[in-house]
Every structure is written in structure tokens, then in C-alpha cells.
């Protein structure tokens, strides 16, 4: 069931996920389209997430946005100073910005990073973790992982896990998506594009997520004028994803756009996606066990089982 409407306010609105925004030219959503989108969300009972460009919006846009309950996603480079206080999610696209960032309790921060940058600079994360309530690390080029990179990523997760264990033992409880989410989940918690959320683009059309709009505008799933029309919508659901429905790496974003890019099917993750998610899952298992050595922690959560594979695809004969 669709619960969220993401409104891409401009073609250049910040990416907050795996996709790179290729658009460089401003193209602000029409005010009437914005108002119609808000009305659509009200009538369909959808929570809106506005995704902002880096420039300041005209006042009539701000007024329209404030007419409804919503959340705001902005880039750390956003020129509108007032938005920094109001934003719910602030996205960093580089490590330098992150190292100088000012963090506020209650906000979520996203760090979009390449694999190479993460491998080189991951120690910066240790400092940030003690200052934030939640940090999401989004690796933007998971498809580039090679076998030797998996081992390196495993080591990095171990290091960050040690840091988190210490913070938790000291009474802090910051969330780092790649290590703490799985500890708290007992069912899949994926991105939900096409299933629990859809995106309204500046052209007045709906898309599975902003990436589907930014990379091919013809990929729409309906419009404000004609209504929503998601073809093969079952393919966005877990029970129609043969690999994912046999998986317990519940924290995996299961990005349907990356799936389509790498395997040509929205419901099928790549080998690299599965292995990365399982390395995170296994590191979460260790972290949960280690934190529990310091005292009771998430008592309602079961232990995460030990498994002997990193890609459920390799176990398909057992399904």
C-alpha cells in the first residue's frame, strides 16, 4: 500500500540515495503542480517528503509546502540557511563536508560515498557517530565491488562495530544504518519504492523513485492528471522477489533502481548487493552479541542466526 509521496521539487533536487543526479539545469516544479501533488497526497492519505534543490525556493512555494504535514530532505550544500534548522534529513555528498558538519540531535544524516572514498576515509565516521542520532551511509557504486573489496568492507564494518560497541556501552545509542538497523529488525525494511512510496516529478508525472525520472522520463507510472497506474506492481513486493523473499538481511535497501540497472529486473538484486548486505548482516550479528555482553539490550529481539553464505542466490537449490 502506498503510504508516502516523495515530491522532487526540481530536476536538480539532491540525491539522497544510490543514484547520482545527472541533471544540472534548474527545472522547478510548477506551483499548480505542487499544489495538485499536495492535494493528491491529502486525498490519498500519503505522508509527503519534499526533496529540495540547493537554491532557495520562492516564498509562494514555501507557503504551499507548509500547508501540509511533511518532512524535508536537503543537501548539506543547500543555500537556504533557514532550511538547515527545519530539515529532517541532511545529505552529505562528500567527506570533507561531513568532517566540518554541525550535527543536531533528532535529525538524520545521509552520507553518499563511493566505495573508494569509504575505504580511504571510513575512520571519520567514528567521530561523527558520537555526535549524531542517526547516520545512513549510502554506497553509490555497489556494483563495482570485487572479491577483494568484500574482505576490505568486512574489516571496515568490524572497526566501526567496535566503535559502536564502545558508545553503546557508554550509554549512547547512535544509529548507523549498515550496522545497527539489522539488530532492531525482524522483518524486511527495504526502500519500498513502488510499493510503499512513489515520487512526483516536476513534470506532474509519477515515478517509482526519483532515479526512474532522472534517467528516463518515459518511465512514468501515471500522472496527476490521469491517476496512478503502476504496471506489474506486484514486482515491487517482497513476495515476488525470489531472492529477497528467502533473505534475512532485513536492513538491505533492496534498491529497485540499482536492481534494474544491474540485473535488468526490479525484483532481482545483483551479487554485489547481496554480499554487501550480508556482510552488514553478519557484522550486525557480532555487534548485537558484543553489546549484550555489557548488559541487557533489545531483549525482545532474537539472536541473528549464523549462516554459511553471503549470497542467497547460491542457496537457491534449497528453496
Amino acid at each position: 500500500m502506498i503510504e508516502y509521496l516523495i515530491i522532487q521539487l526540481d530536476d536538480t533536487s539532491t540525491s539522497y540515495c544510490h543514484y547520482e543526479n545527472p541533471k544540472r539545469k534548474d527545472n522547478l516544479i510548477g506551483l499548480d503542480t505542487l499544489k495538485s501533488g499536495i492535494l493528491f497526497a491529502m486525498k490519498e492519505n500519503l505522508m509527503i517528503q519534499f526533496v529540495y534543490p540547493d537554491y532557495e525556493l520562492p516564498s509562494e512555494y514555501k507557503e504551499a509546502i507548509e500547508s501540509i504535514d511533511h518532512s524535508k530532505i536537503i543537501s548539506s550544500l543547500c543555500e537556504d540557511e533557514s532550511l538547515r534548522d527545519e530539515a529532517d534529513v541532511i545529505v552529505y555528498h562528500d567527506w570533507t563536508g561531513l568532517s566540518f558538519g554541525k550535527f543536531e540531535a533528532g535529525k538524520s544524516y545521509v552520507l553518499r560515498t563511493s566505495k573508494a572514498d569509504l575505504f580511504e576515509r571510513y575512520l571519520f565516521v567514528k567521530d561523527v557517530l558520537s555526535k549524531v542520532t542517526r547516520l545512513n551511509i549510502v554506497i553509490t557504486d555497489i556494483e563495482s565491488f570485487k572479491e577483494e573489496d568484500f574482505e576490505r568492507y568486512k574489516q571496515i564494518l568490524e572497526t566501526l562495530s567496535g566503535c559502536l560497541e564502545k558508545l553503546y556501552a557508554d550509554g549512547q545509542s547512535p544509529q548507523l544504518n549498515i550496522l545497527t538497523d539489522r539488530m532492531m529488525l525482524s522483518t524486511m525494511n527495504n526502500c519500498g519504492a513502488g510499493e510503499t512510496n512513489i515520487t512526483l516529478a516536476p513534470n506532474g508525472k509519477f515515478y517509482v523513485c526519483p532515479a526512474f525520472y532522472l534517467y528516463d522520463e518515459s518511465n512514468s507510472i501515471g500522472s496527476l492528471a490521469d491517476g496512478l497506474d503502476i504496471k506489474n506492481k506486484q514486482l515491487y513486493k517482497l513476495d515476488h522477489a525470489p531472492i529477497c523473499s528467502h533473505c534475512d538481511a532485513y536492513q538491505c535497501k533492496r534498491c529497485v533502481w540499482v536492481n534494474q540497472k544491474t540485473t535488468l529486473e526490479v525484483n532481482t538484486p545483483s551479487h554485489e548487493q547481496c554480499v554487501v548486505a550480508h556482510l552488514e548482516r553478519n557484522a550486525s550479528r557480532e555487534l548485537l552479541q558484543n553489546i549484550r555482553k555489557h548488559g541487557s539490550f533489545l531483549p525482545e529481539q532474537e539472536e541473528i542466526k549464523q549462516i554459511d553464505y553471503l549470497d542467497p542466490f547460491d542457496k537457491r537449490e534449497m528453496w
Binding site: E143, H240, P242, T262, T263, L264, T268, P269, H271, F313
Partner: peptide
């Protein structure tokens, strides 16, 4: 590209 074979090798009747 083995990734592009994954949908075929996991496809079943019901899905």
C-alpha cells in the same frame, strides 16, 4: 555478466 542471468535462474512458476 552473471548478474543479468540471476533473474532467469531464480524465476519460478508462481512469481
Amino acid at each position: 555478466d552473471q548478474n543479468k542471468l540471476r533473474p532467469f535462474l531464480t524465476l519460478n512458476r508462481c512469481t
